[in-house]
């Protein structure tokens, strides 16, 4: 996290997770790299092929995630812990530390609610993740939020709507950051921006 030389760091072993404690891994296969779908092999020109932000919405149907199968999911519903495990291992863009160990993402700040509406939409879920920047003027809050949103949109089935917000009172321009993170068009355009994509790729490299 920017500008904070001494962030509070939680011991990784103390973080809540289900991953180490159970043999829960639906496939057992190593997860392929997150941006495989959207980053062409020739990374110098990320727009040389047809691969674009489409990976964002389409990658669920690939086998890159052990959560993408709805049938798997019905047997074992996706809960807050599952979401936490997906995002706590994201690396901070500046520190060599995870968002979980920096307490940027915290289990109690993850909420899954059914979407309102008729029974036709009963499968729909909304995931709200509130992130806590380590300092109130962190200039990278938007990038971190973007990383969380991208990670969840790639890993969760498409019936999940993902809302990422700055936890109230923890950032000086939280409303502005929230508006950007909620803007689908900006997010889509950001994922076609080679520089930003490089930063995101690095952040998500540690998600295994």
């Amino acid at each position: 996290m920017a500008d904070n030389a001494n962030p509070t760091i939680l011991n990784a072993a103390d973080l809540p997770t289900r991953r180490r404690l159970s043999s829960h891994s639906a496939t057992g296969k190593p997860r392929s790299f997150l941006f495989d779908d959207i980053v062409p092999a020739d990374y110098n020109d990320p727009f040389a092929t047809a691969a674009t932000d489409s990976g964002l919405s389409r990658s669920f149907s690939s086998s890159s995630s052990d959560l993408n199968s709805d049938s798997d999911e019905l047997a074992e519903p996706i809960d807050e812990q599952e979401v936490y495990d997906l995002i706590s291992t994201i690396s901070d863009p500046e520190h060599p530390l995870s968002l979980g160990s920096l307490a940027v993402v915290n289990l109690p700040d993850i909420h899954i609610v059914p979407a309102a509406g008729s029974s036709a939409s009963s499968r729909m879920r909304t995931v709200l993740v509130e992130i806590t920047p380590t300092i109130t003027h962190c200039s990278l809050a938007t990038v971190i939020g973007l990383g969380v949103r991208v990670r969840l949109e790639q890993a969760l089935p498409p019936r999940f709507r993902v809302d990422v917000r700055i936890k109230e009172g923890t950032h000086s321009t939280g409303d502005q950051v929230n508006k950007q993170l909620g803007d689908k068009e900006r997010v889509a355009a950001a994922l076609e921006n080679g520089t930003l994509l490089g930063v995101l790729r690095k952040m998500l490299e540690t998600c295994q």
């Binding site: 919405s57 509406g117 008729s118 036709a120 939409s121 499968r123 729909m124 089935p157 498409p158 019936r159 709507r161 689908k184």
Partner: peptide
């Protein structure tokens, strides 16, 4: 509702 299945 869900005019394009679960998609926006």
């Amino acid at each position: 509702e869900m005019a394009h299945d679960v998609f926006e």
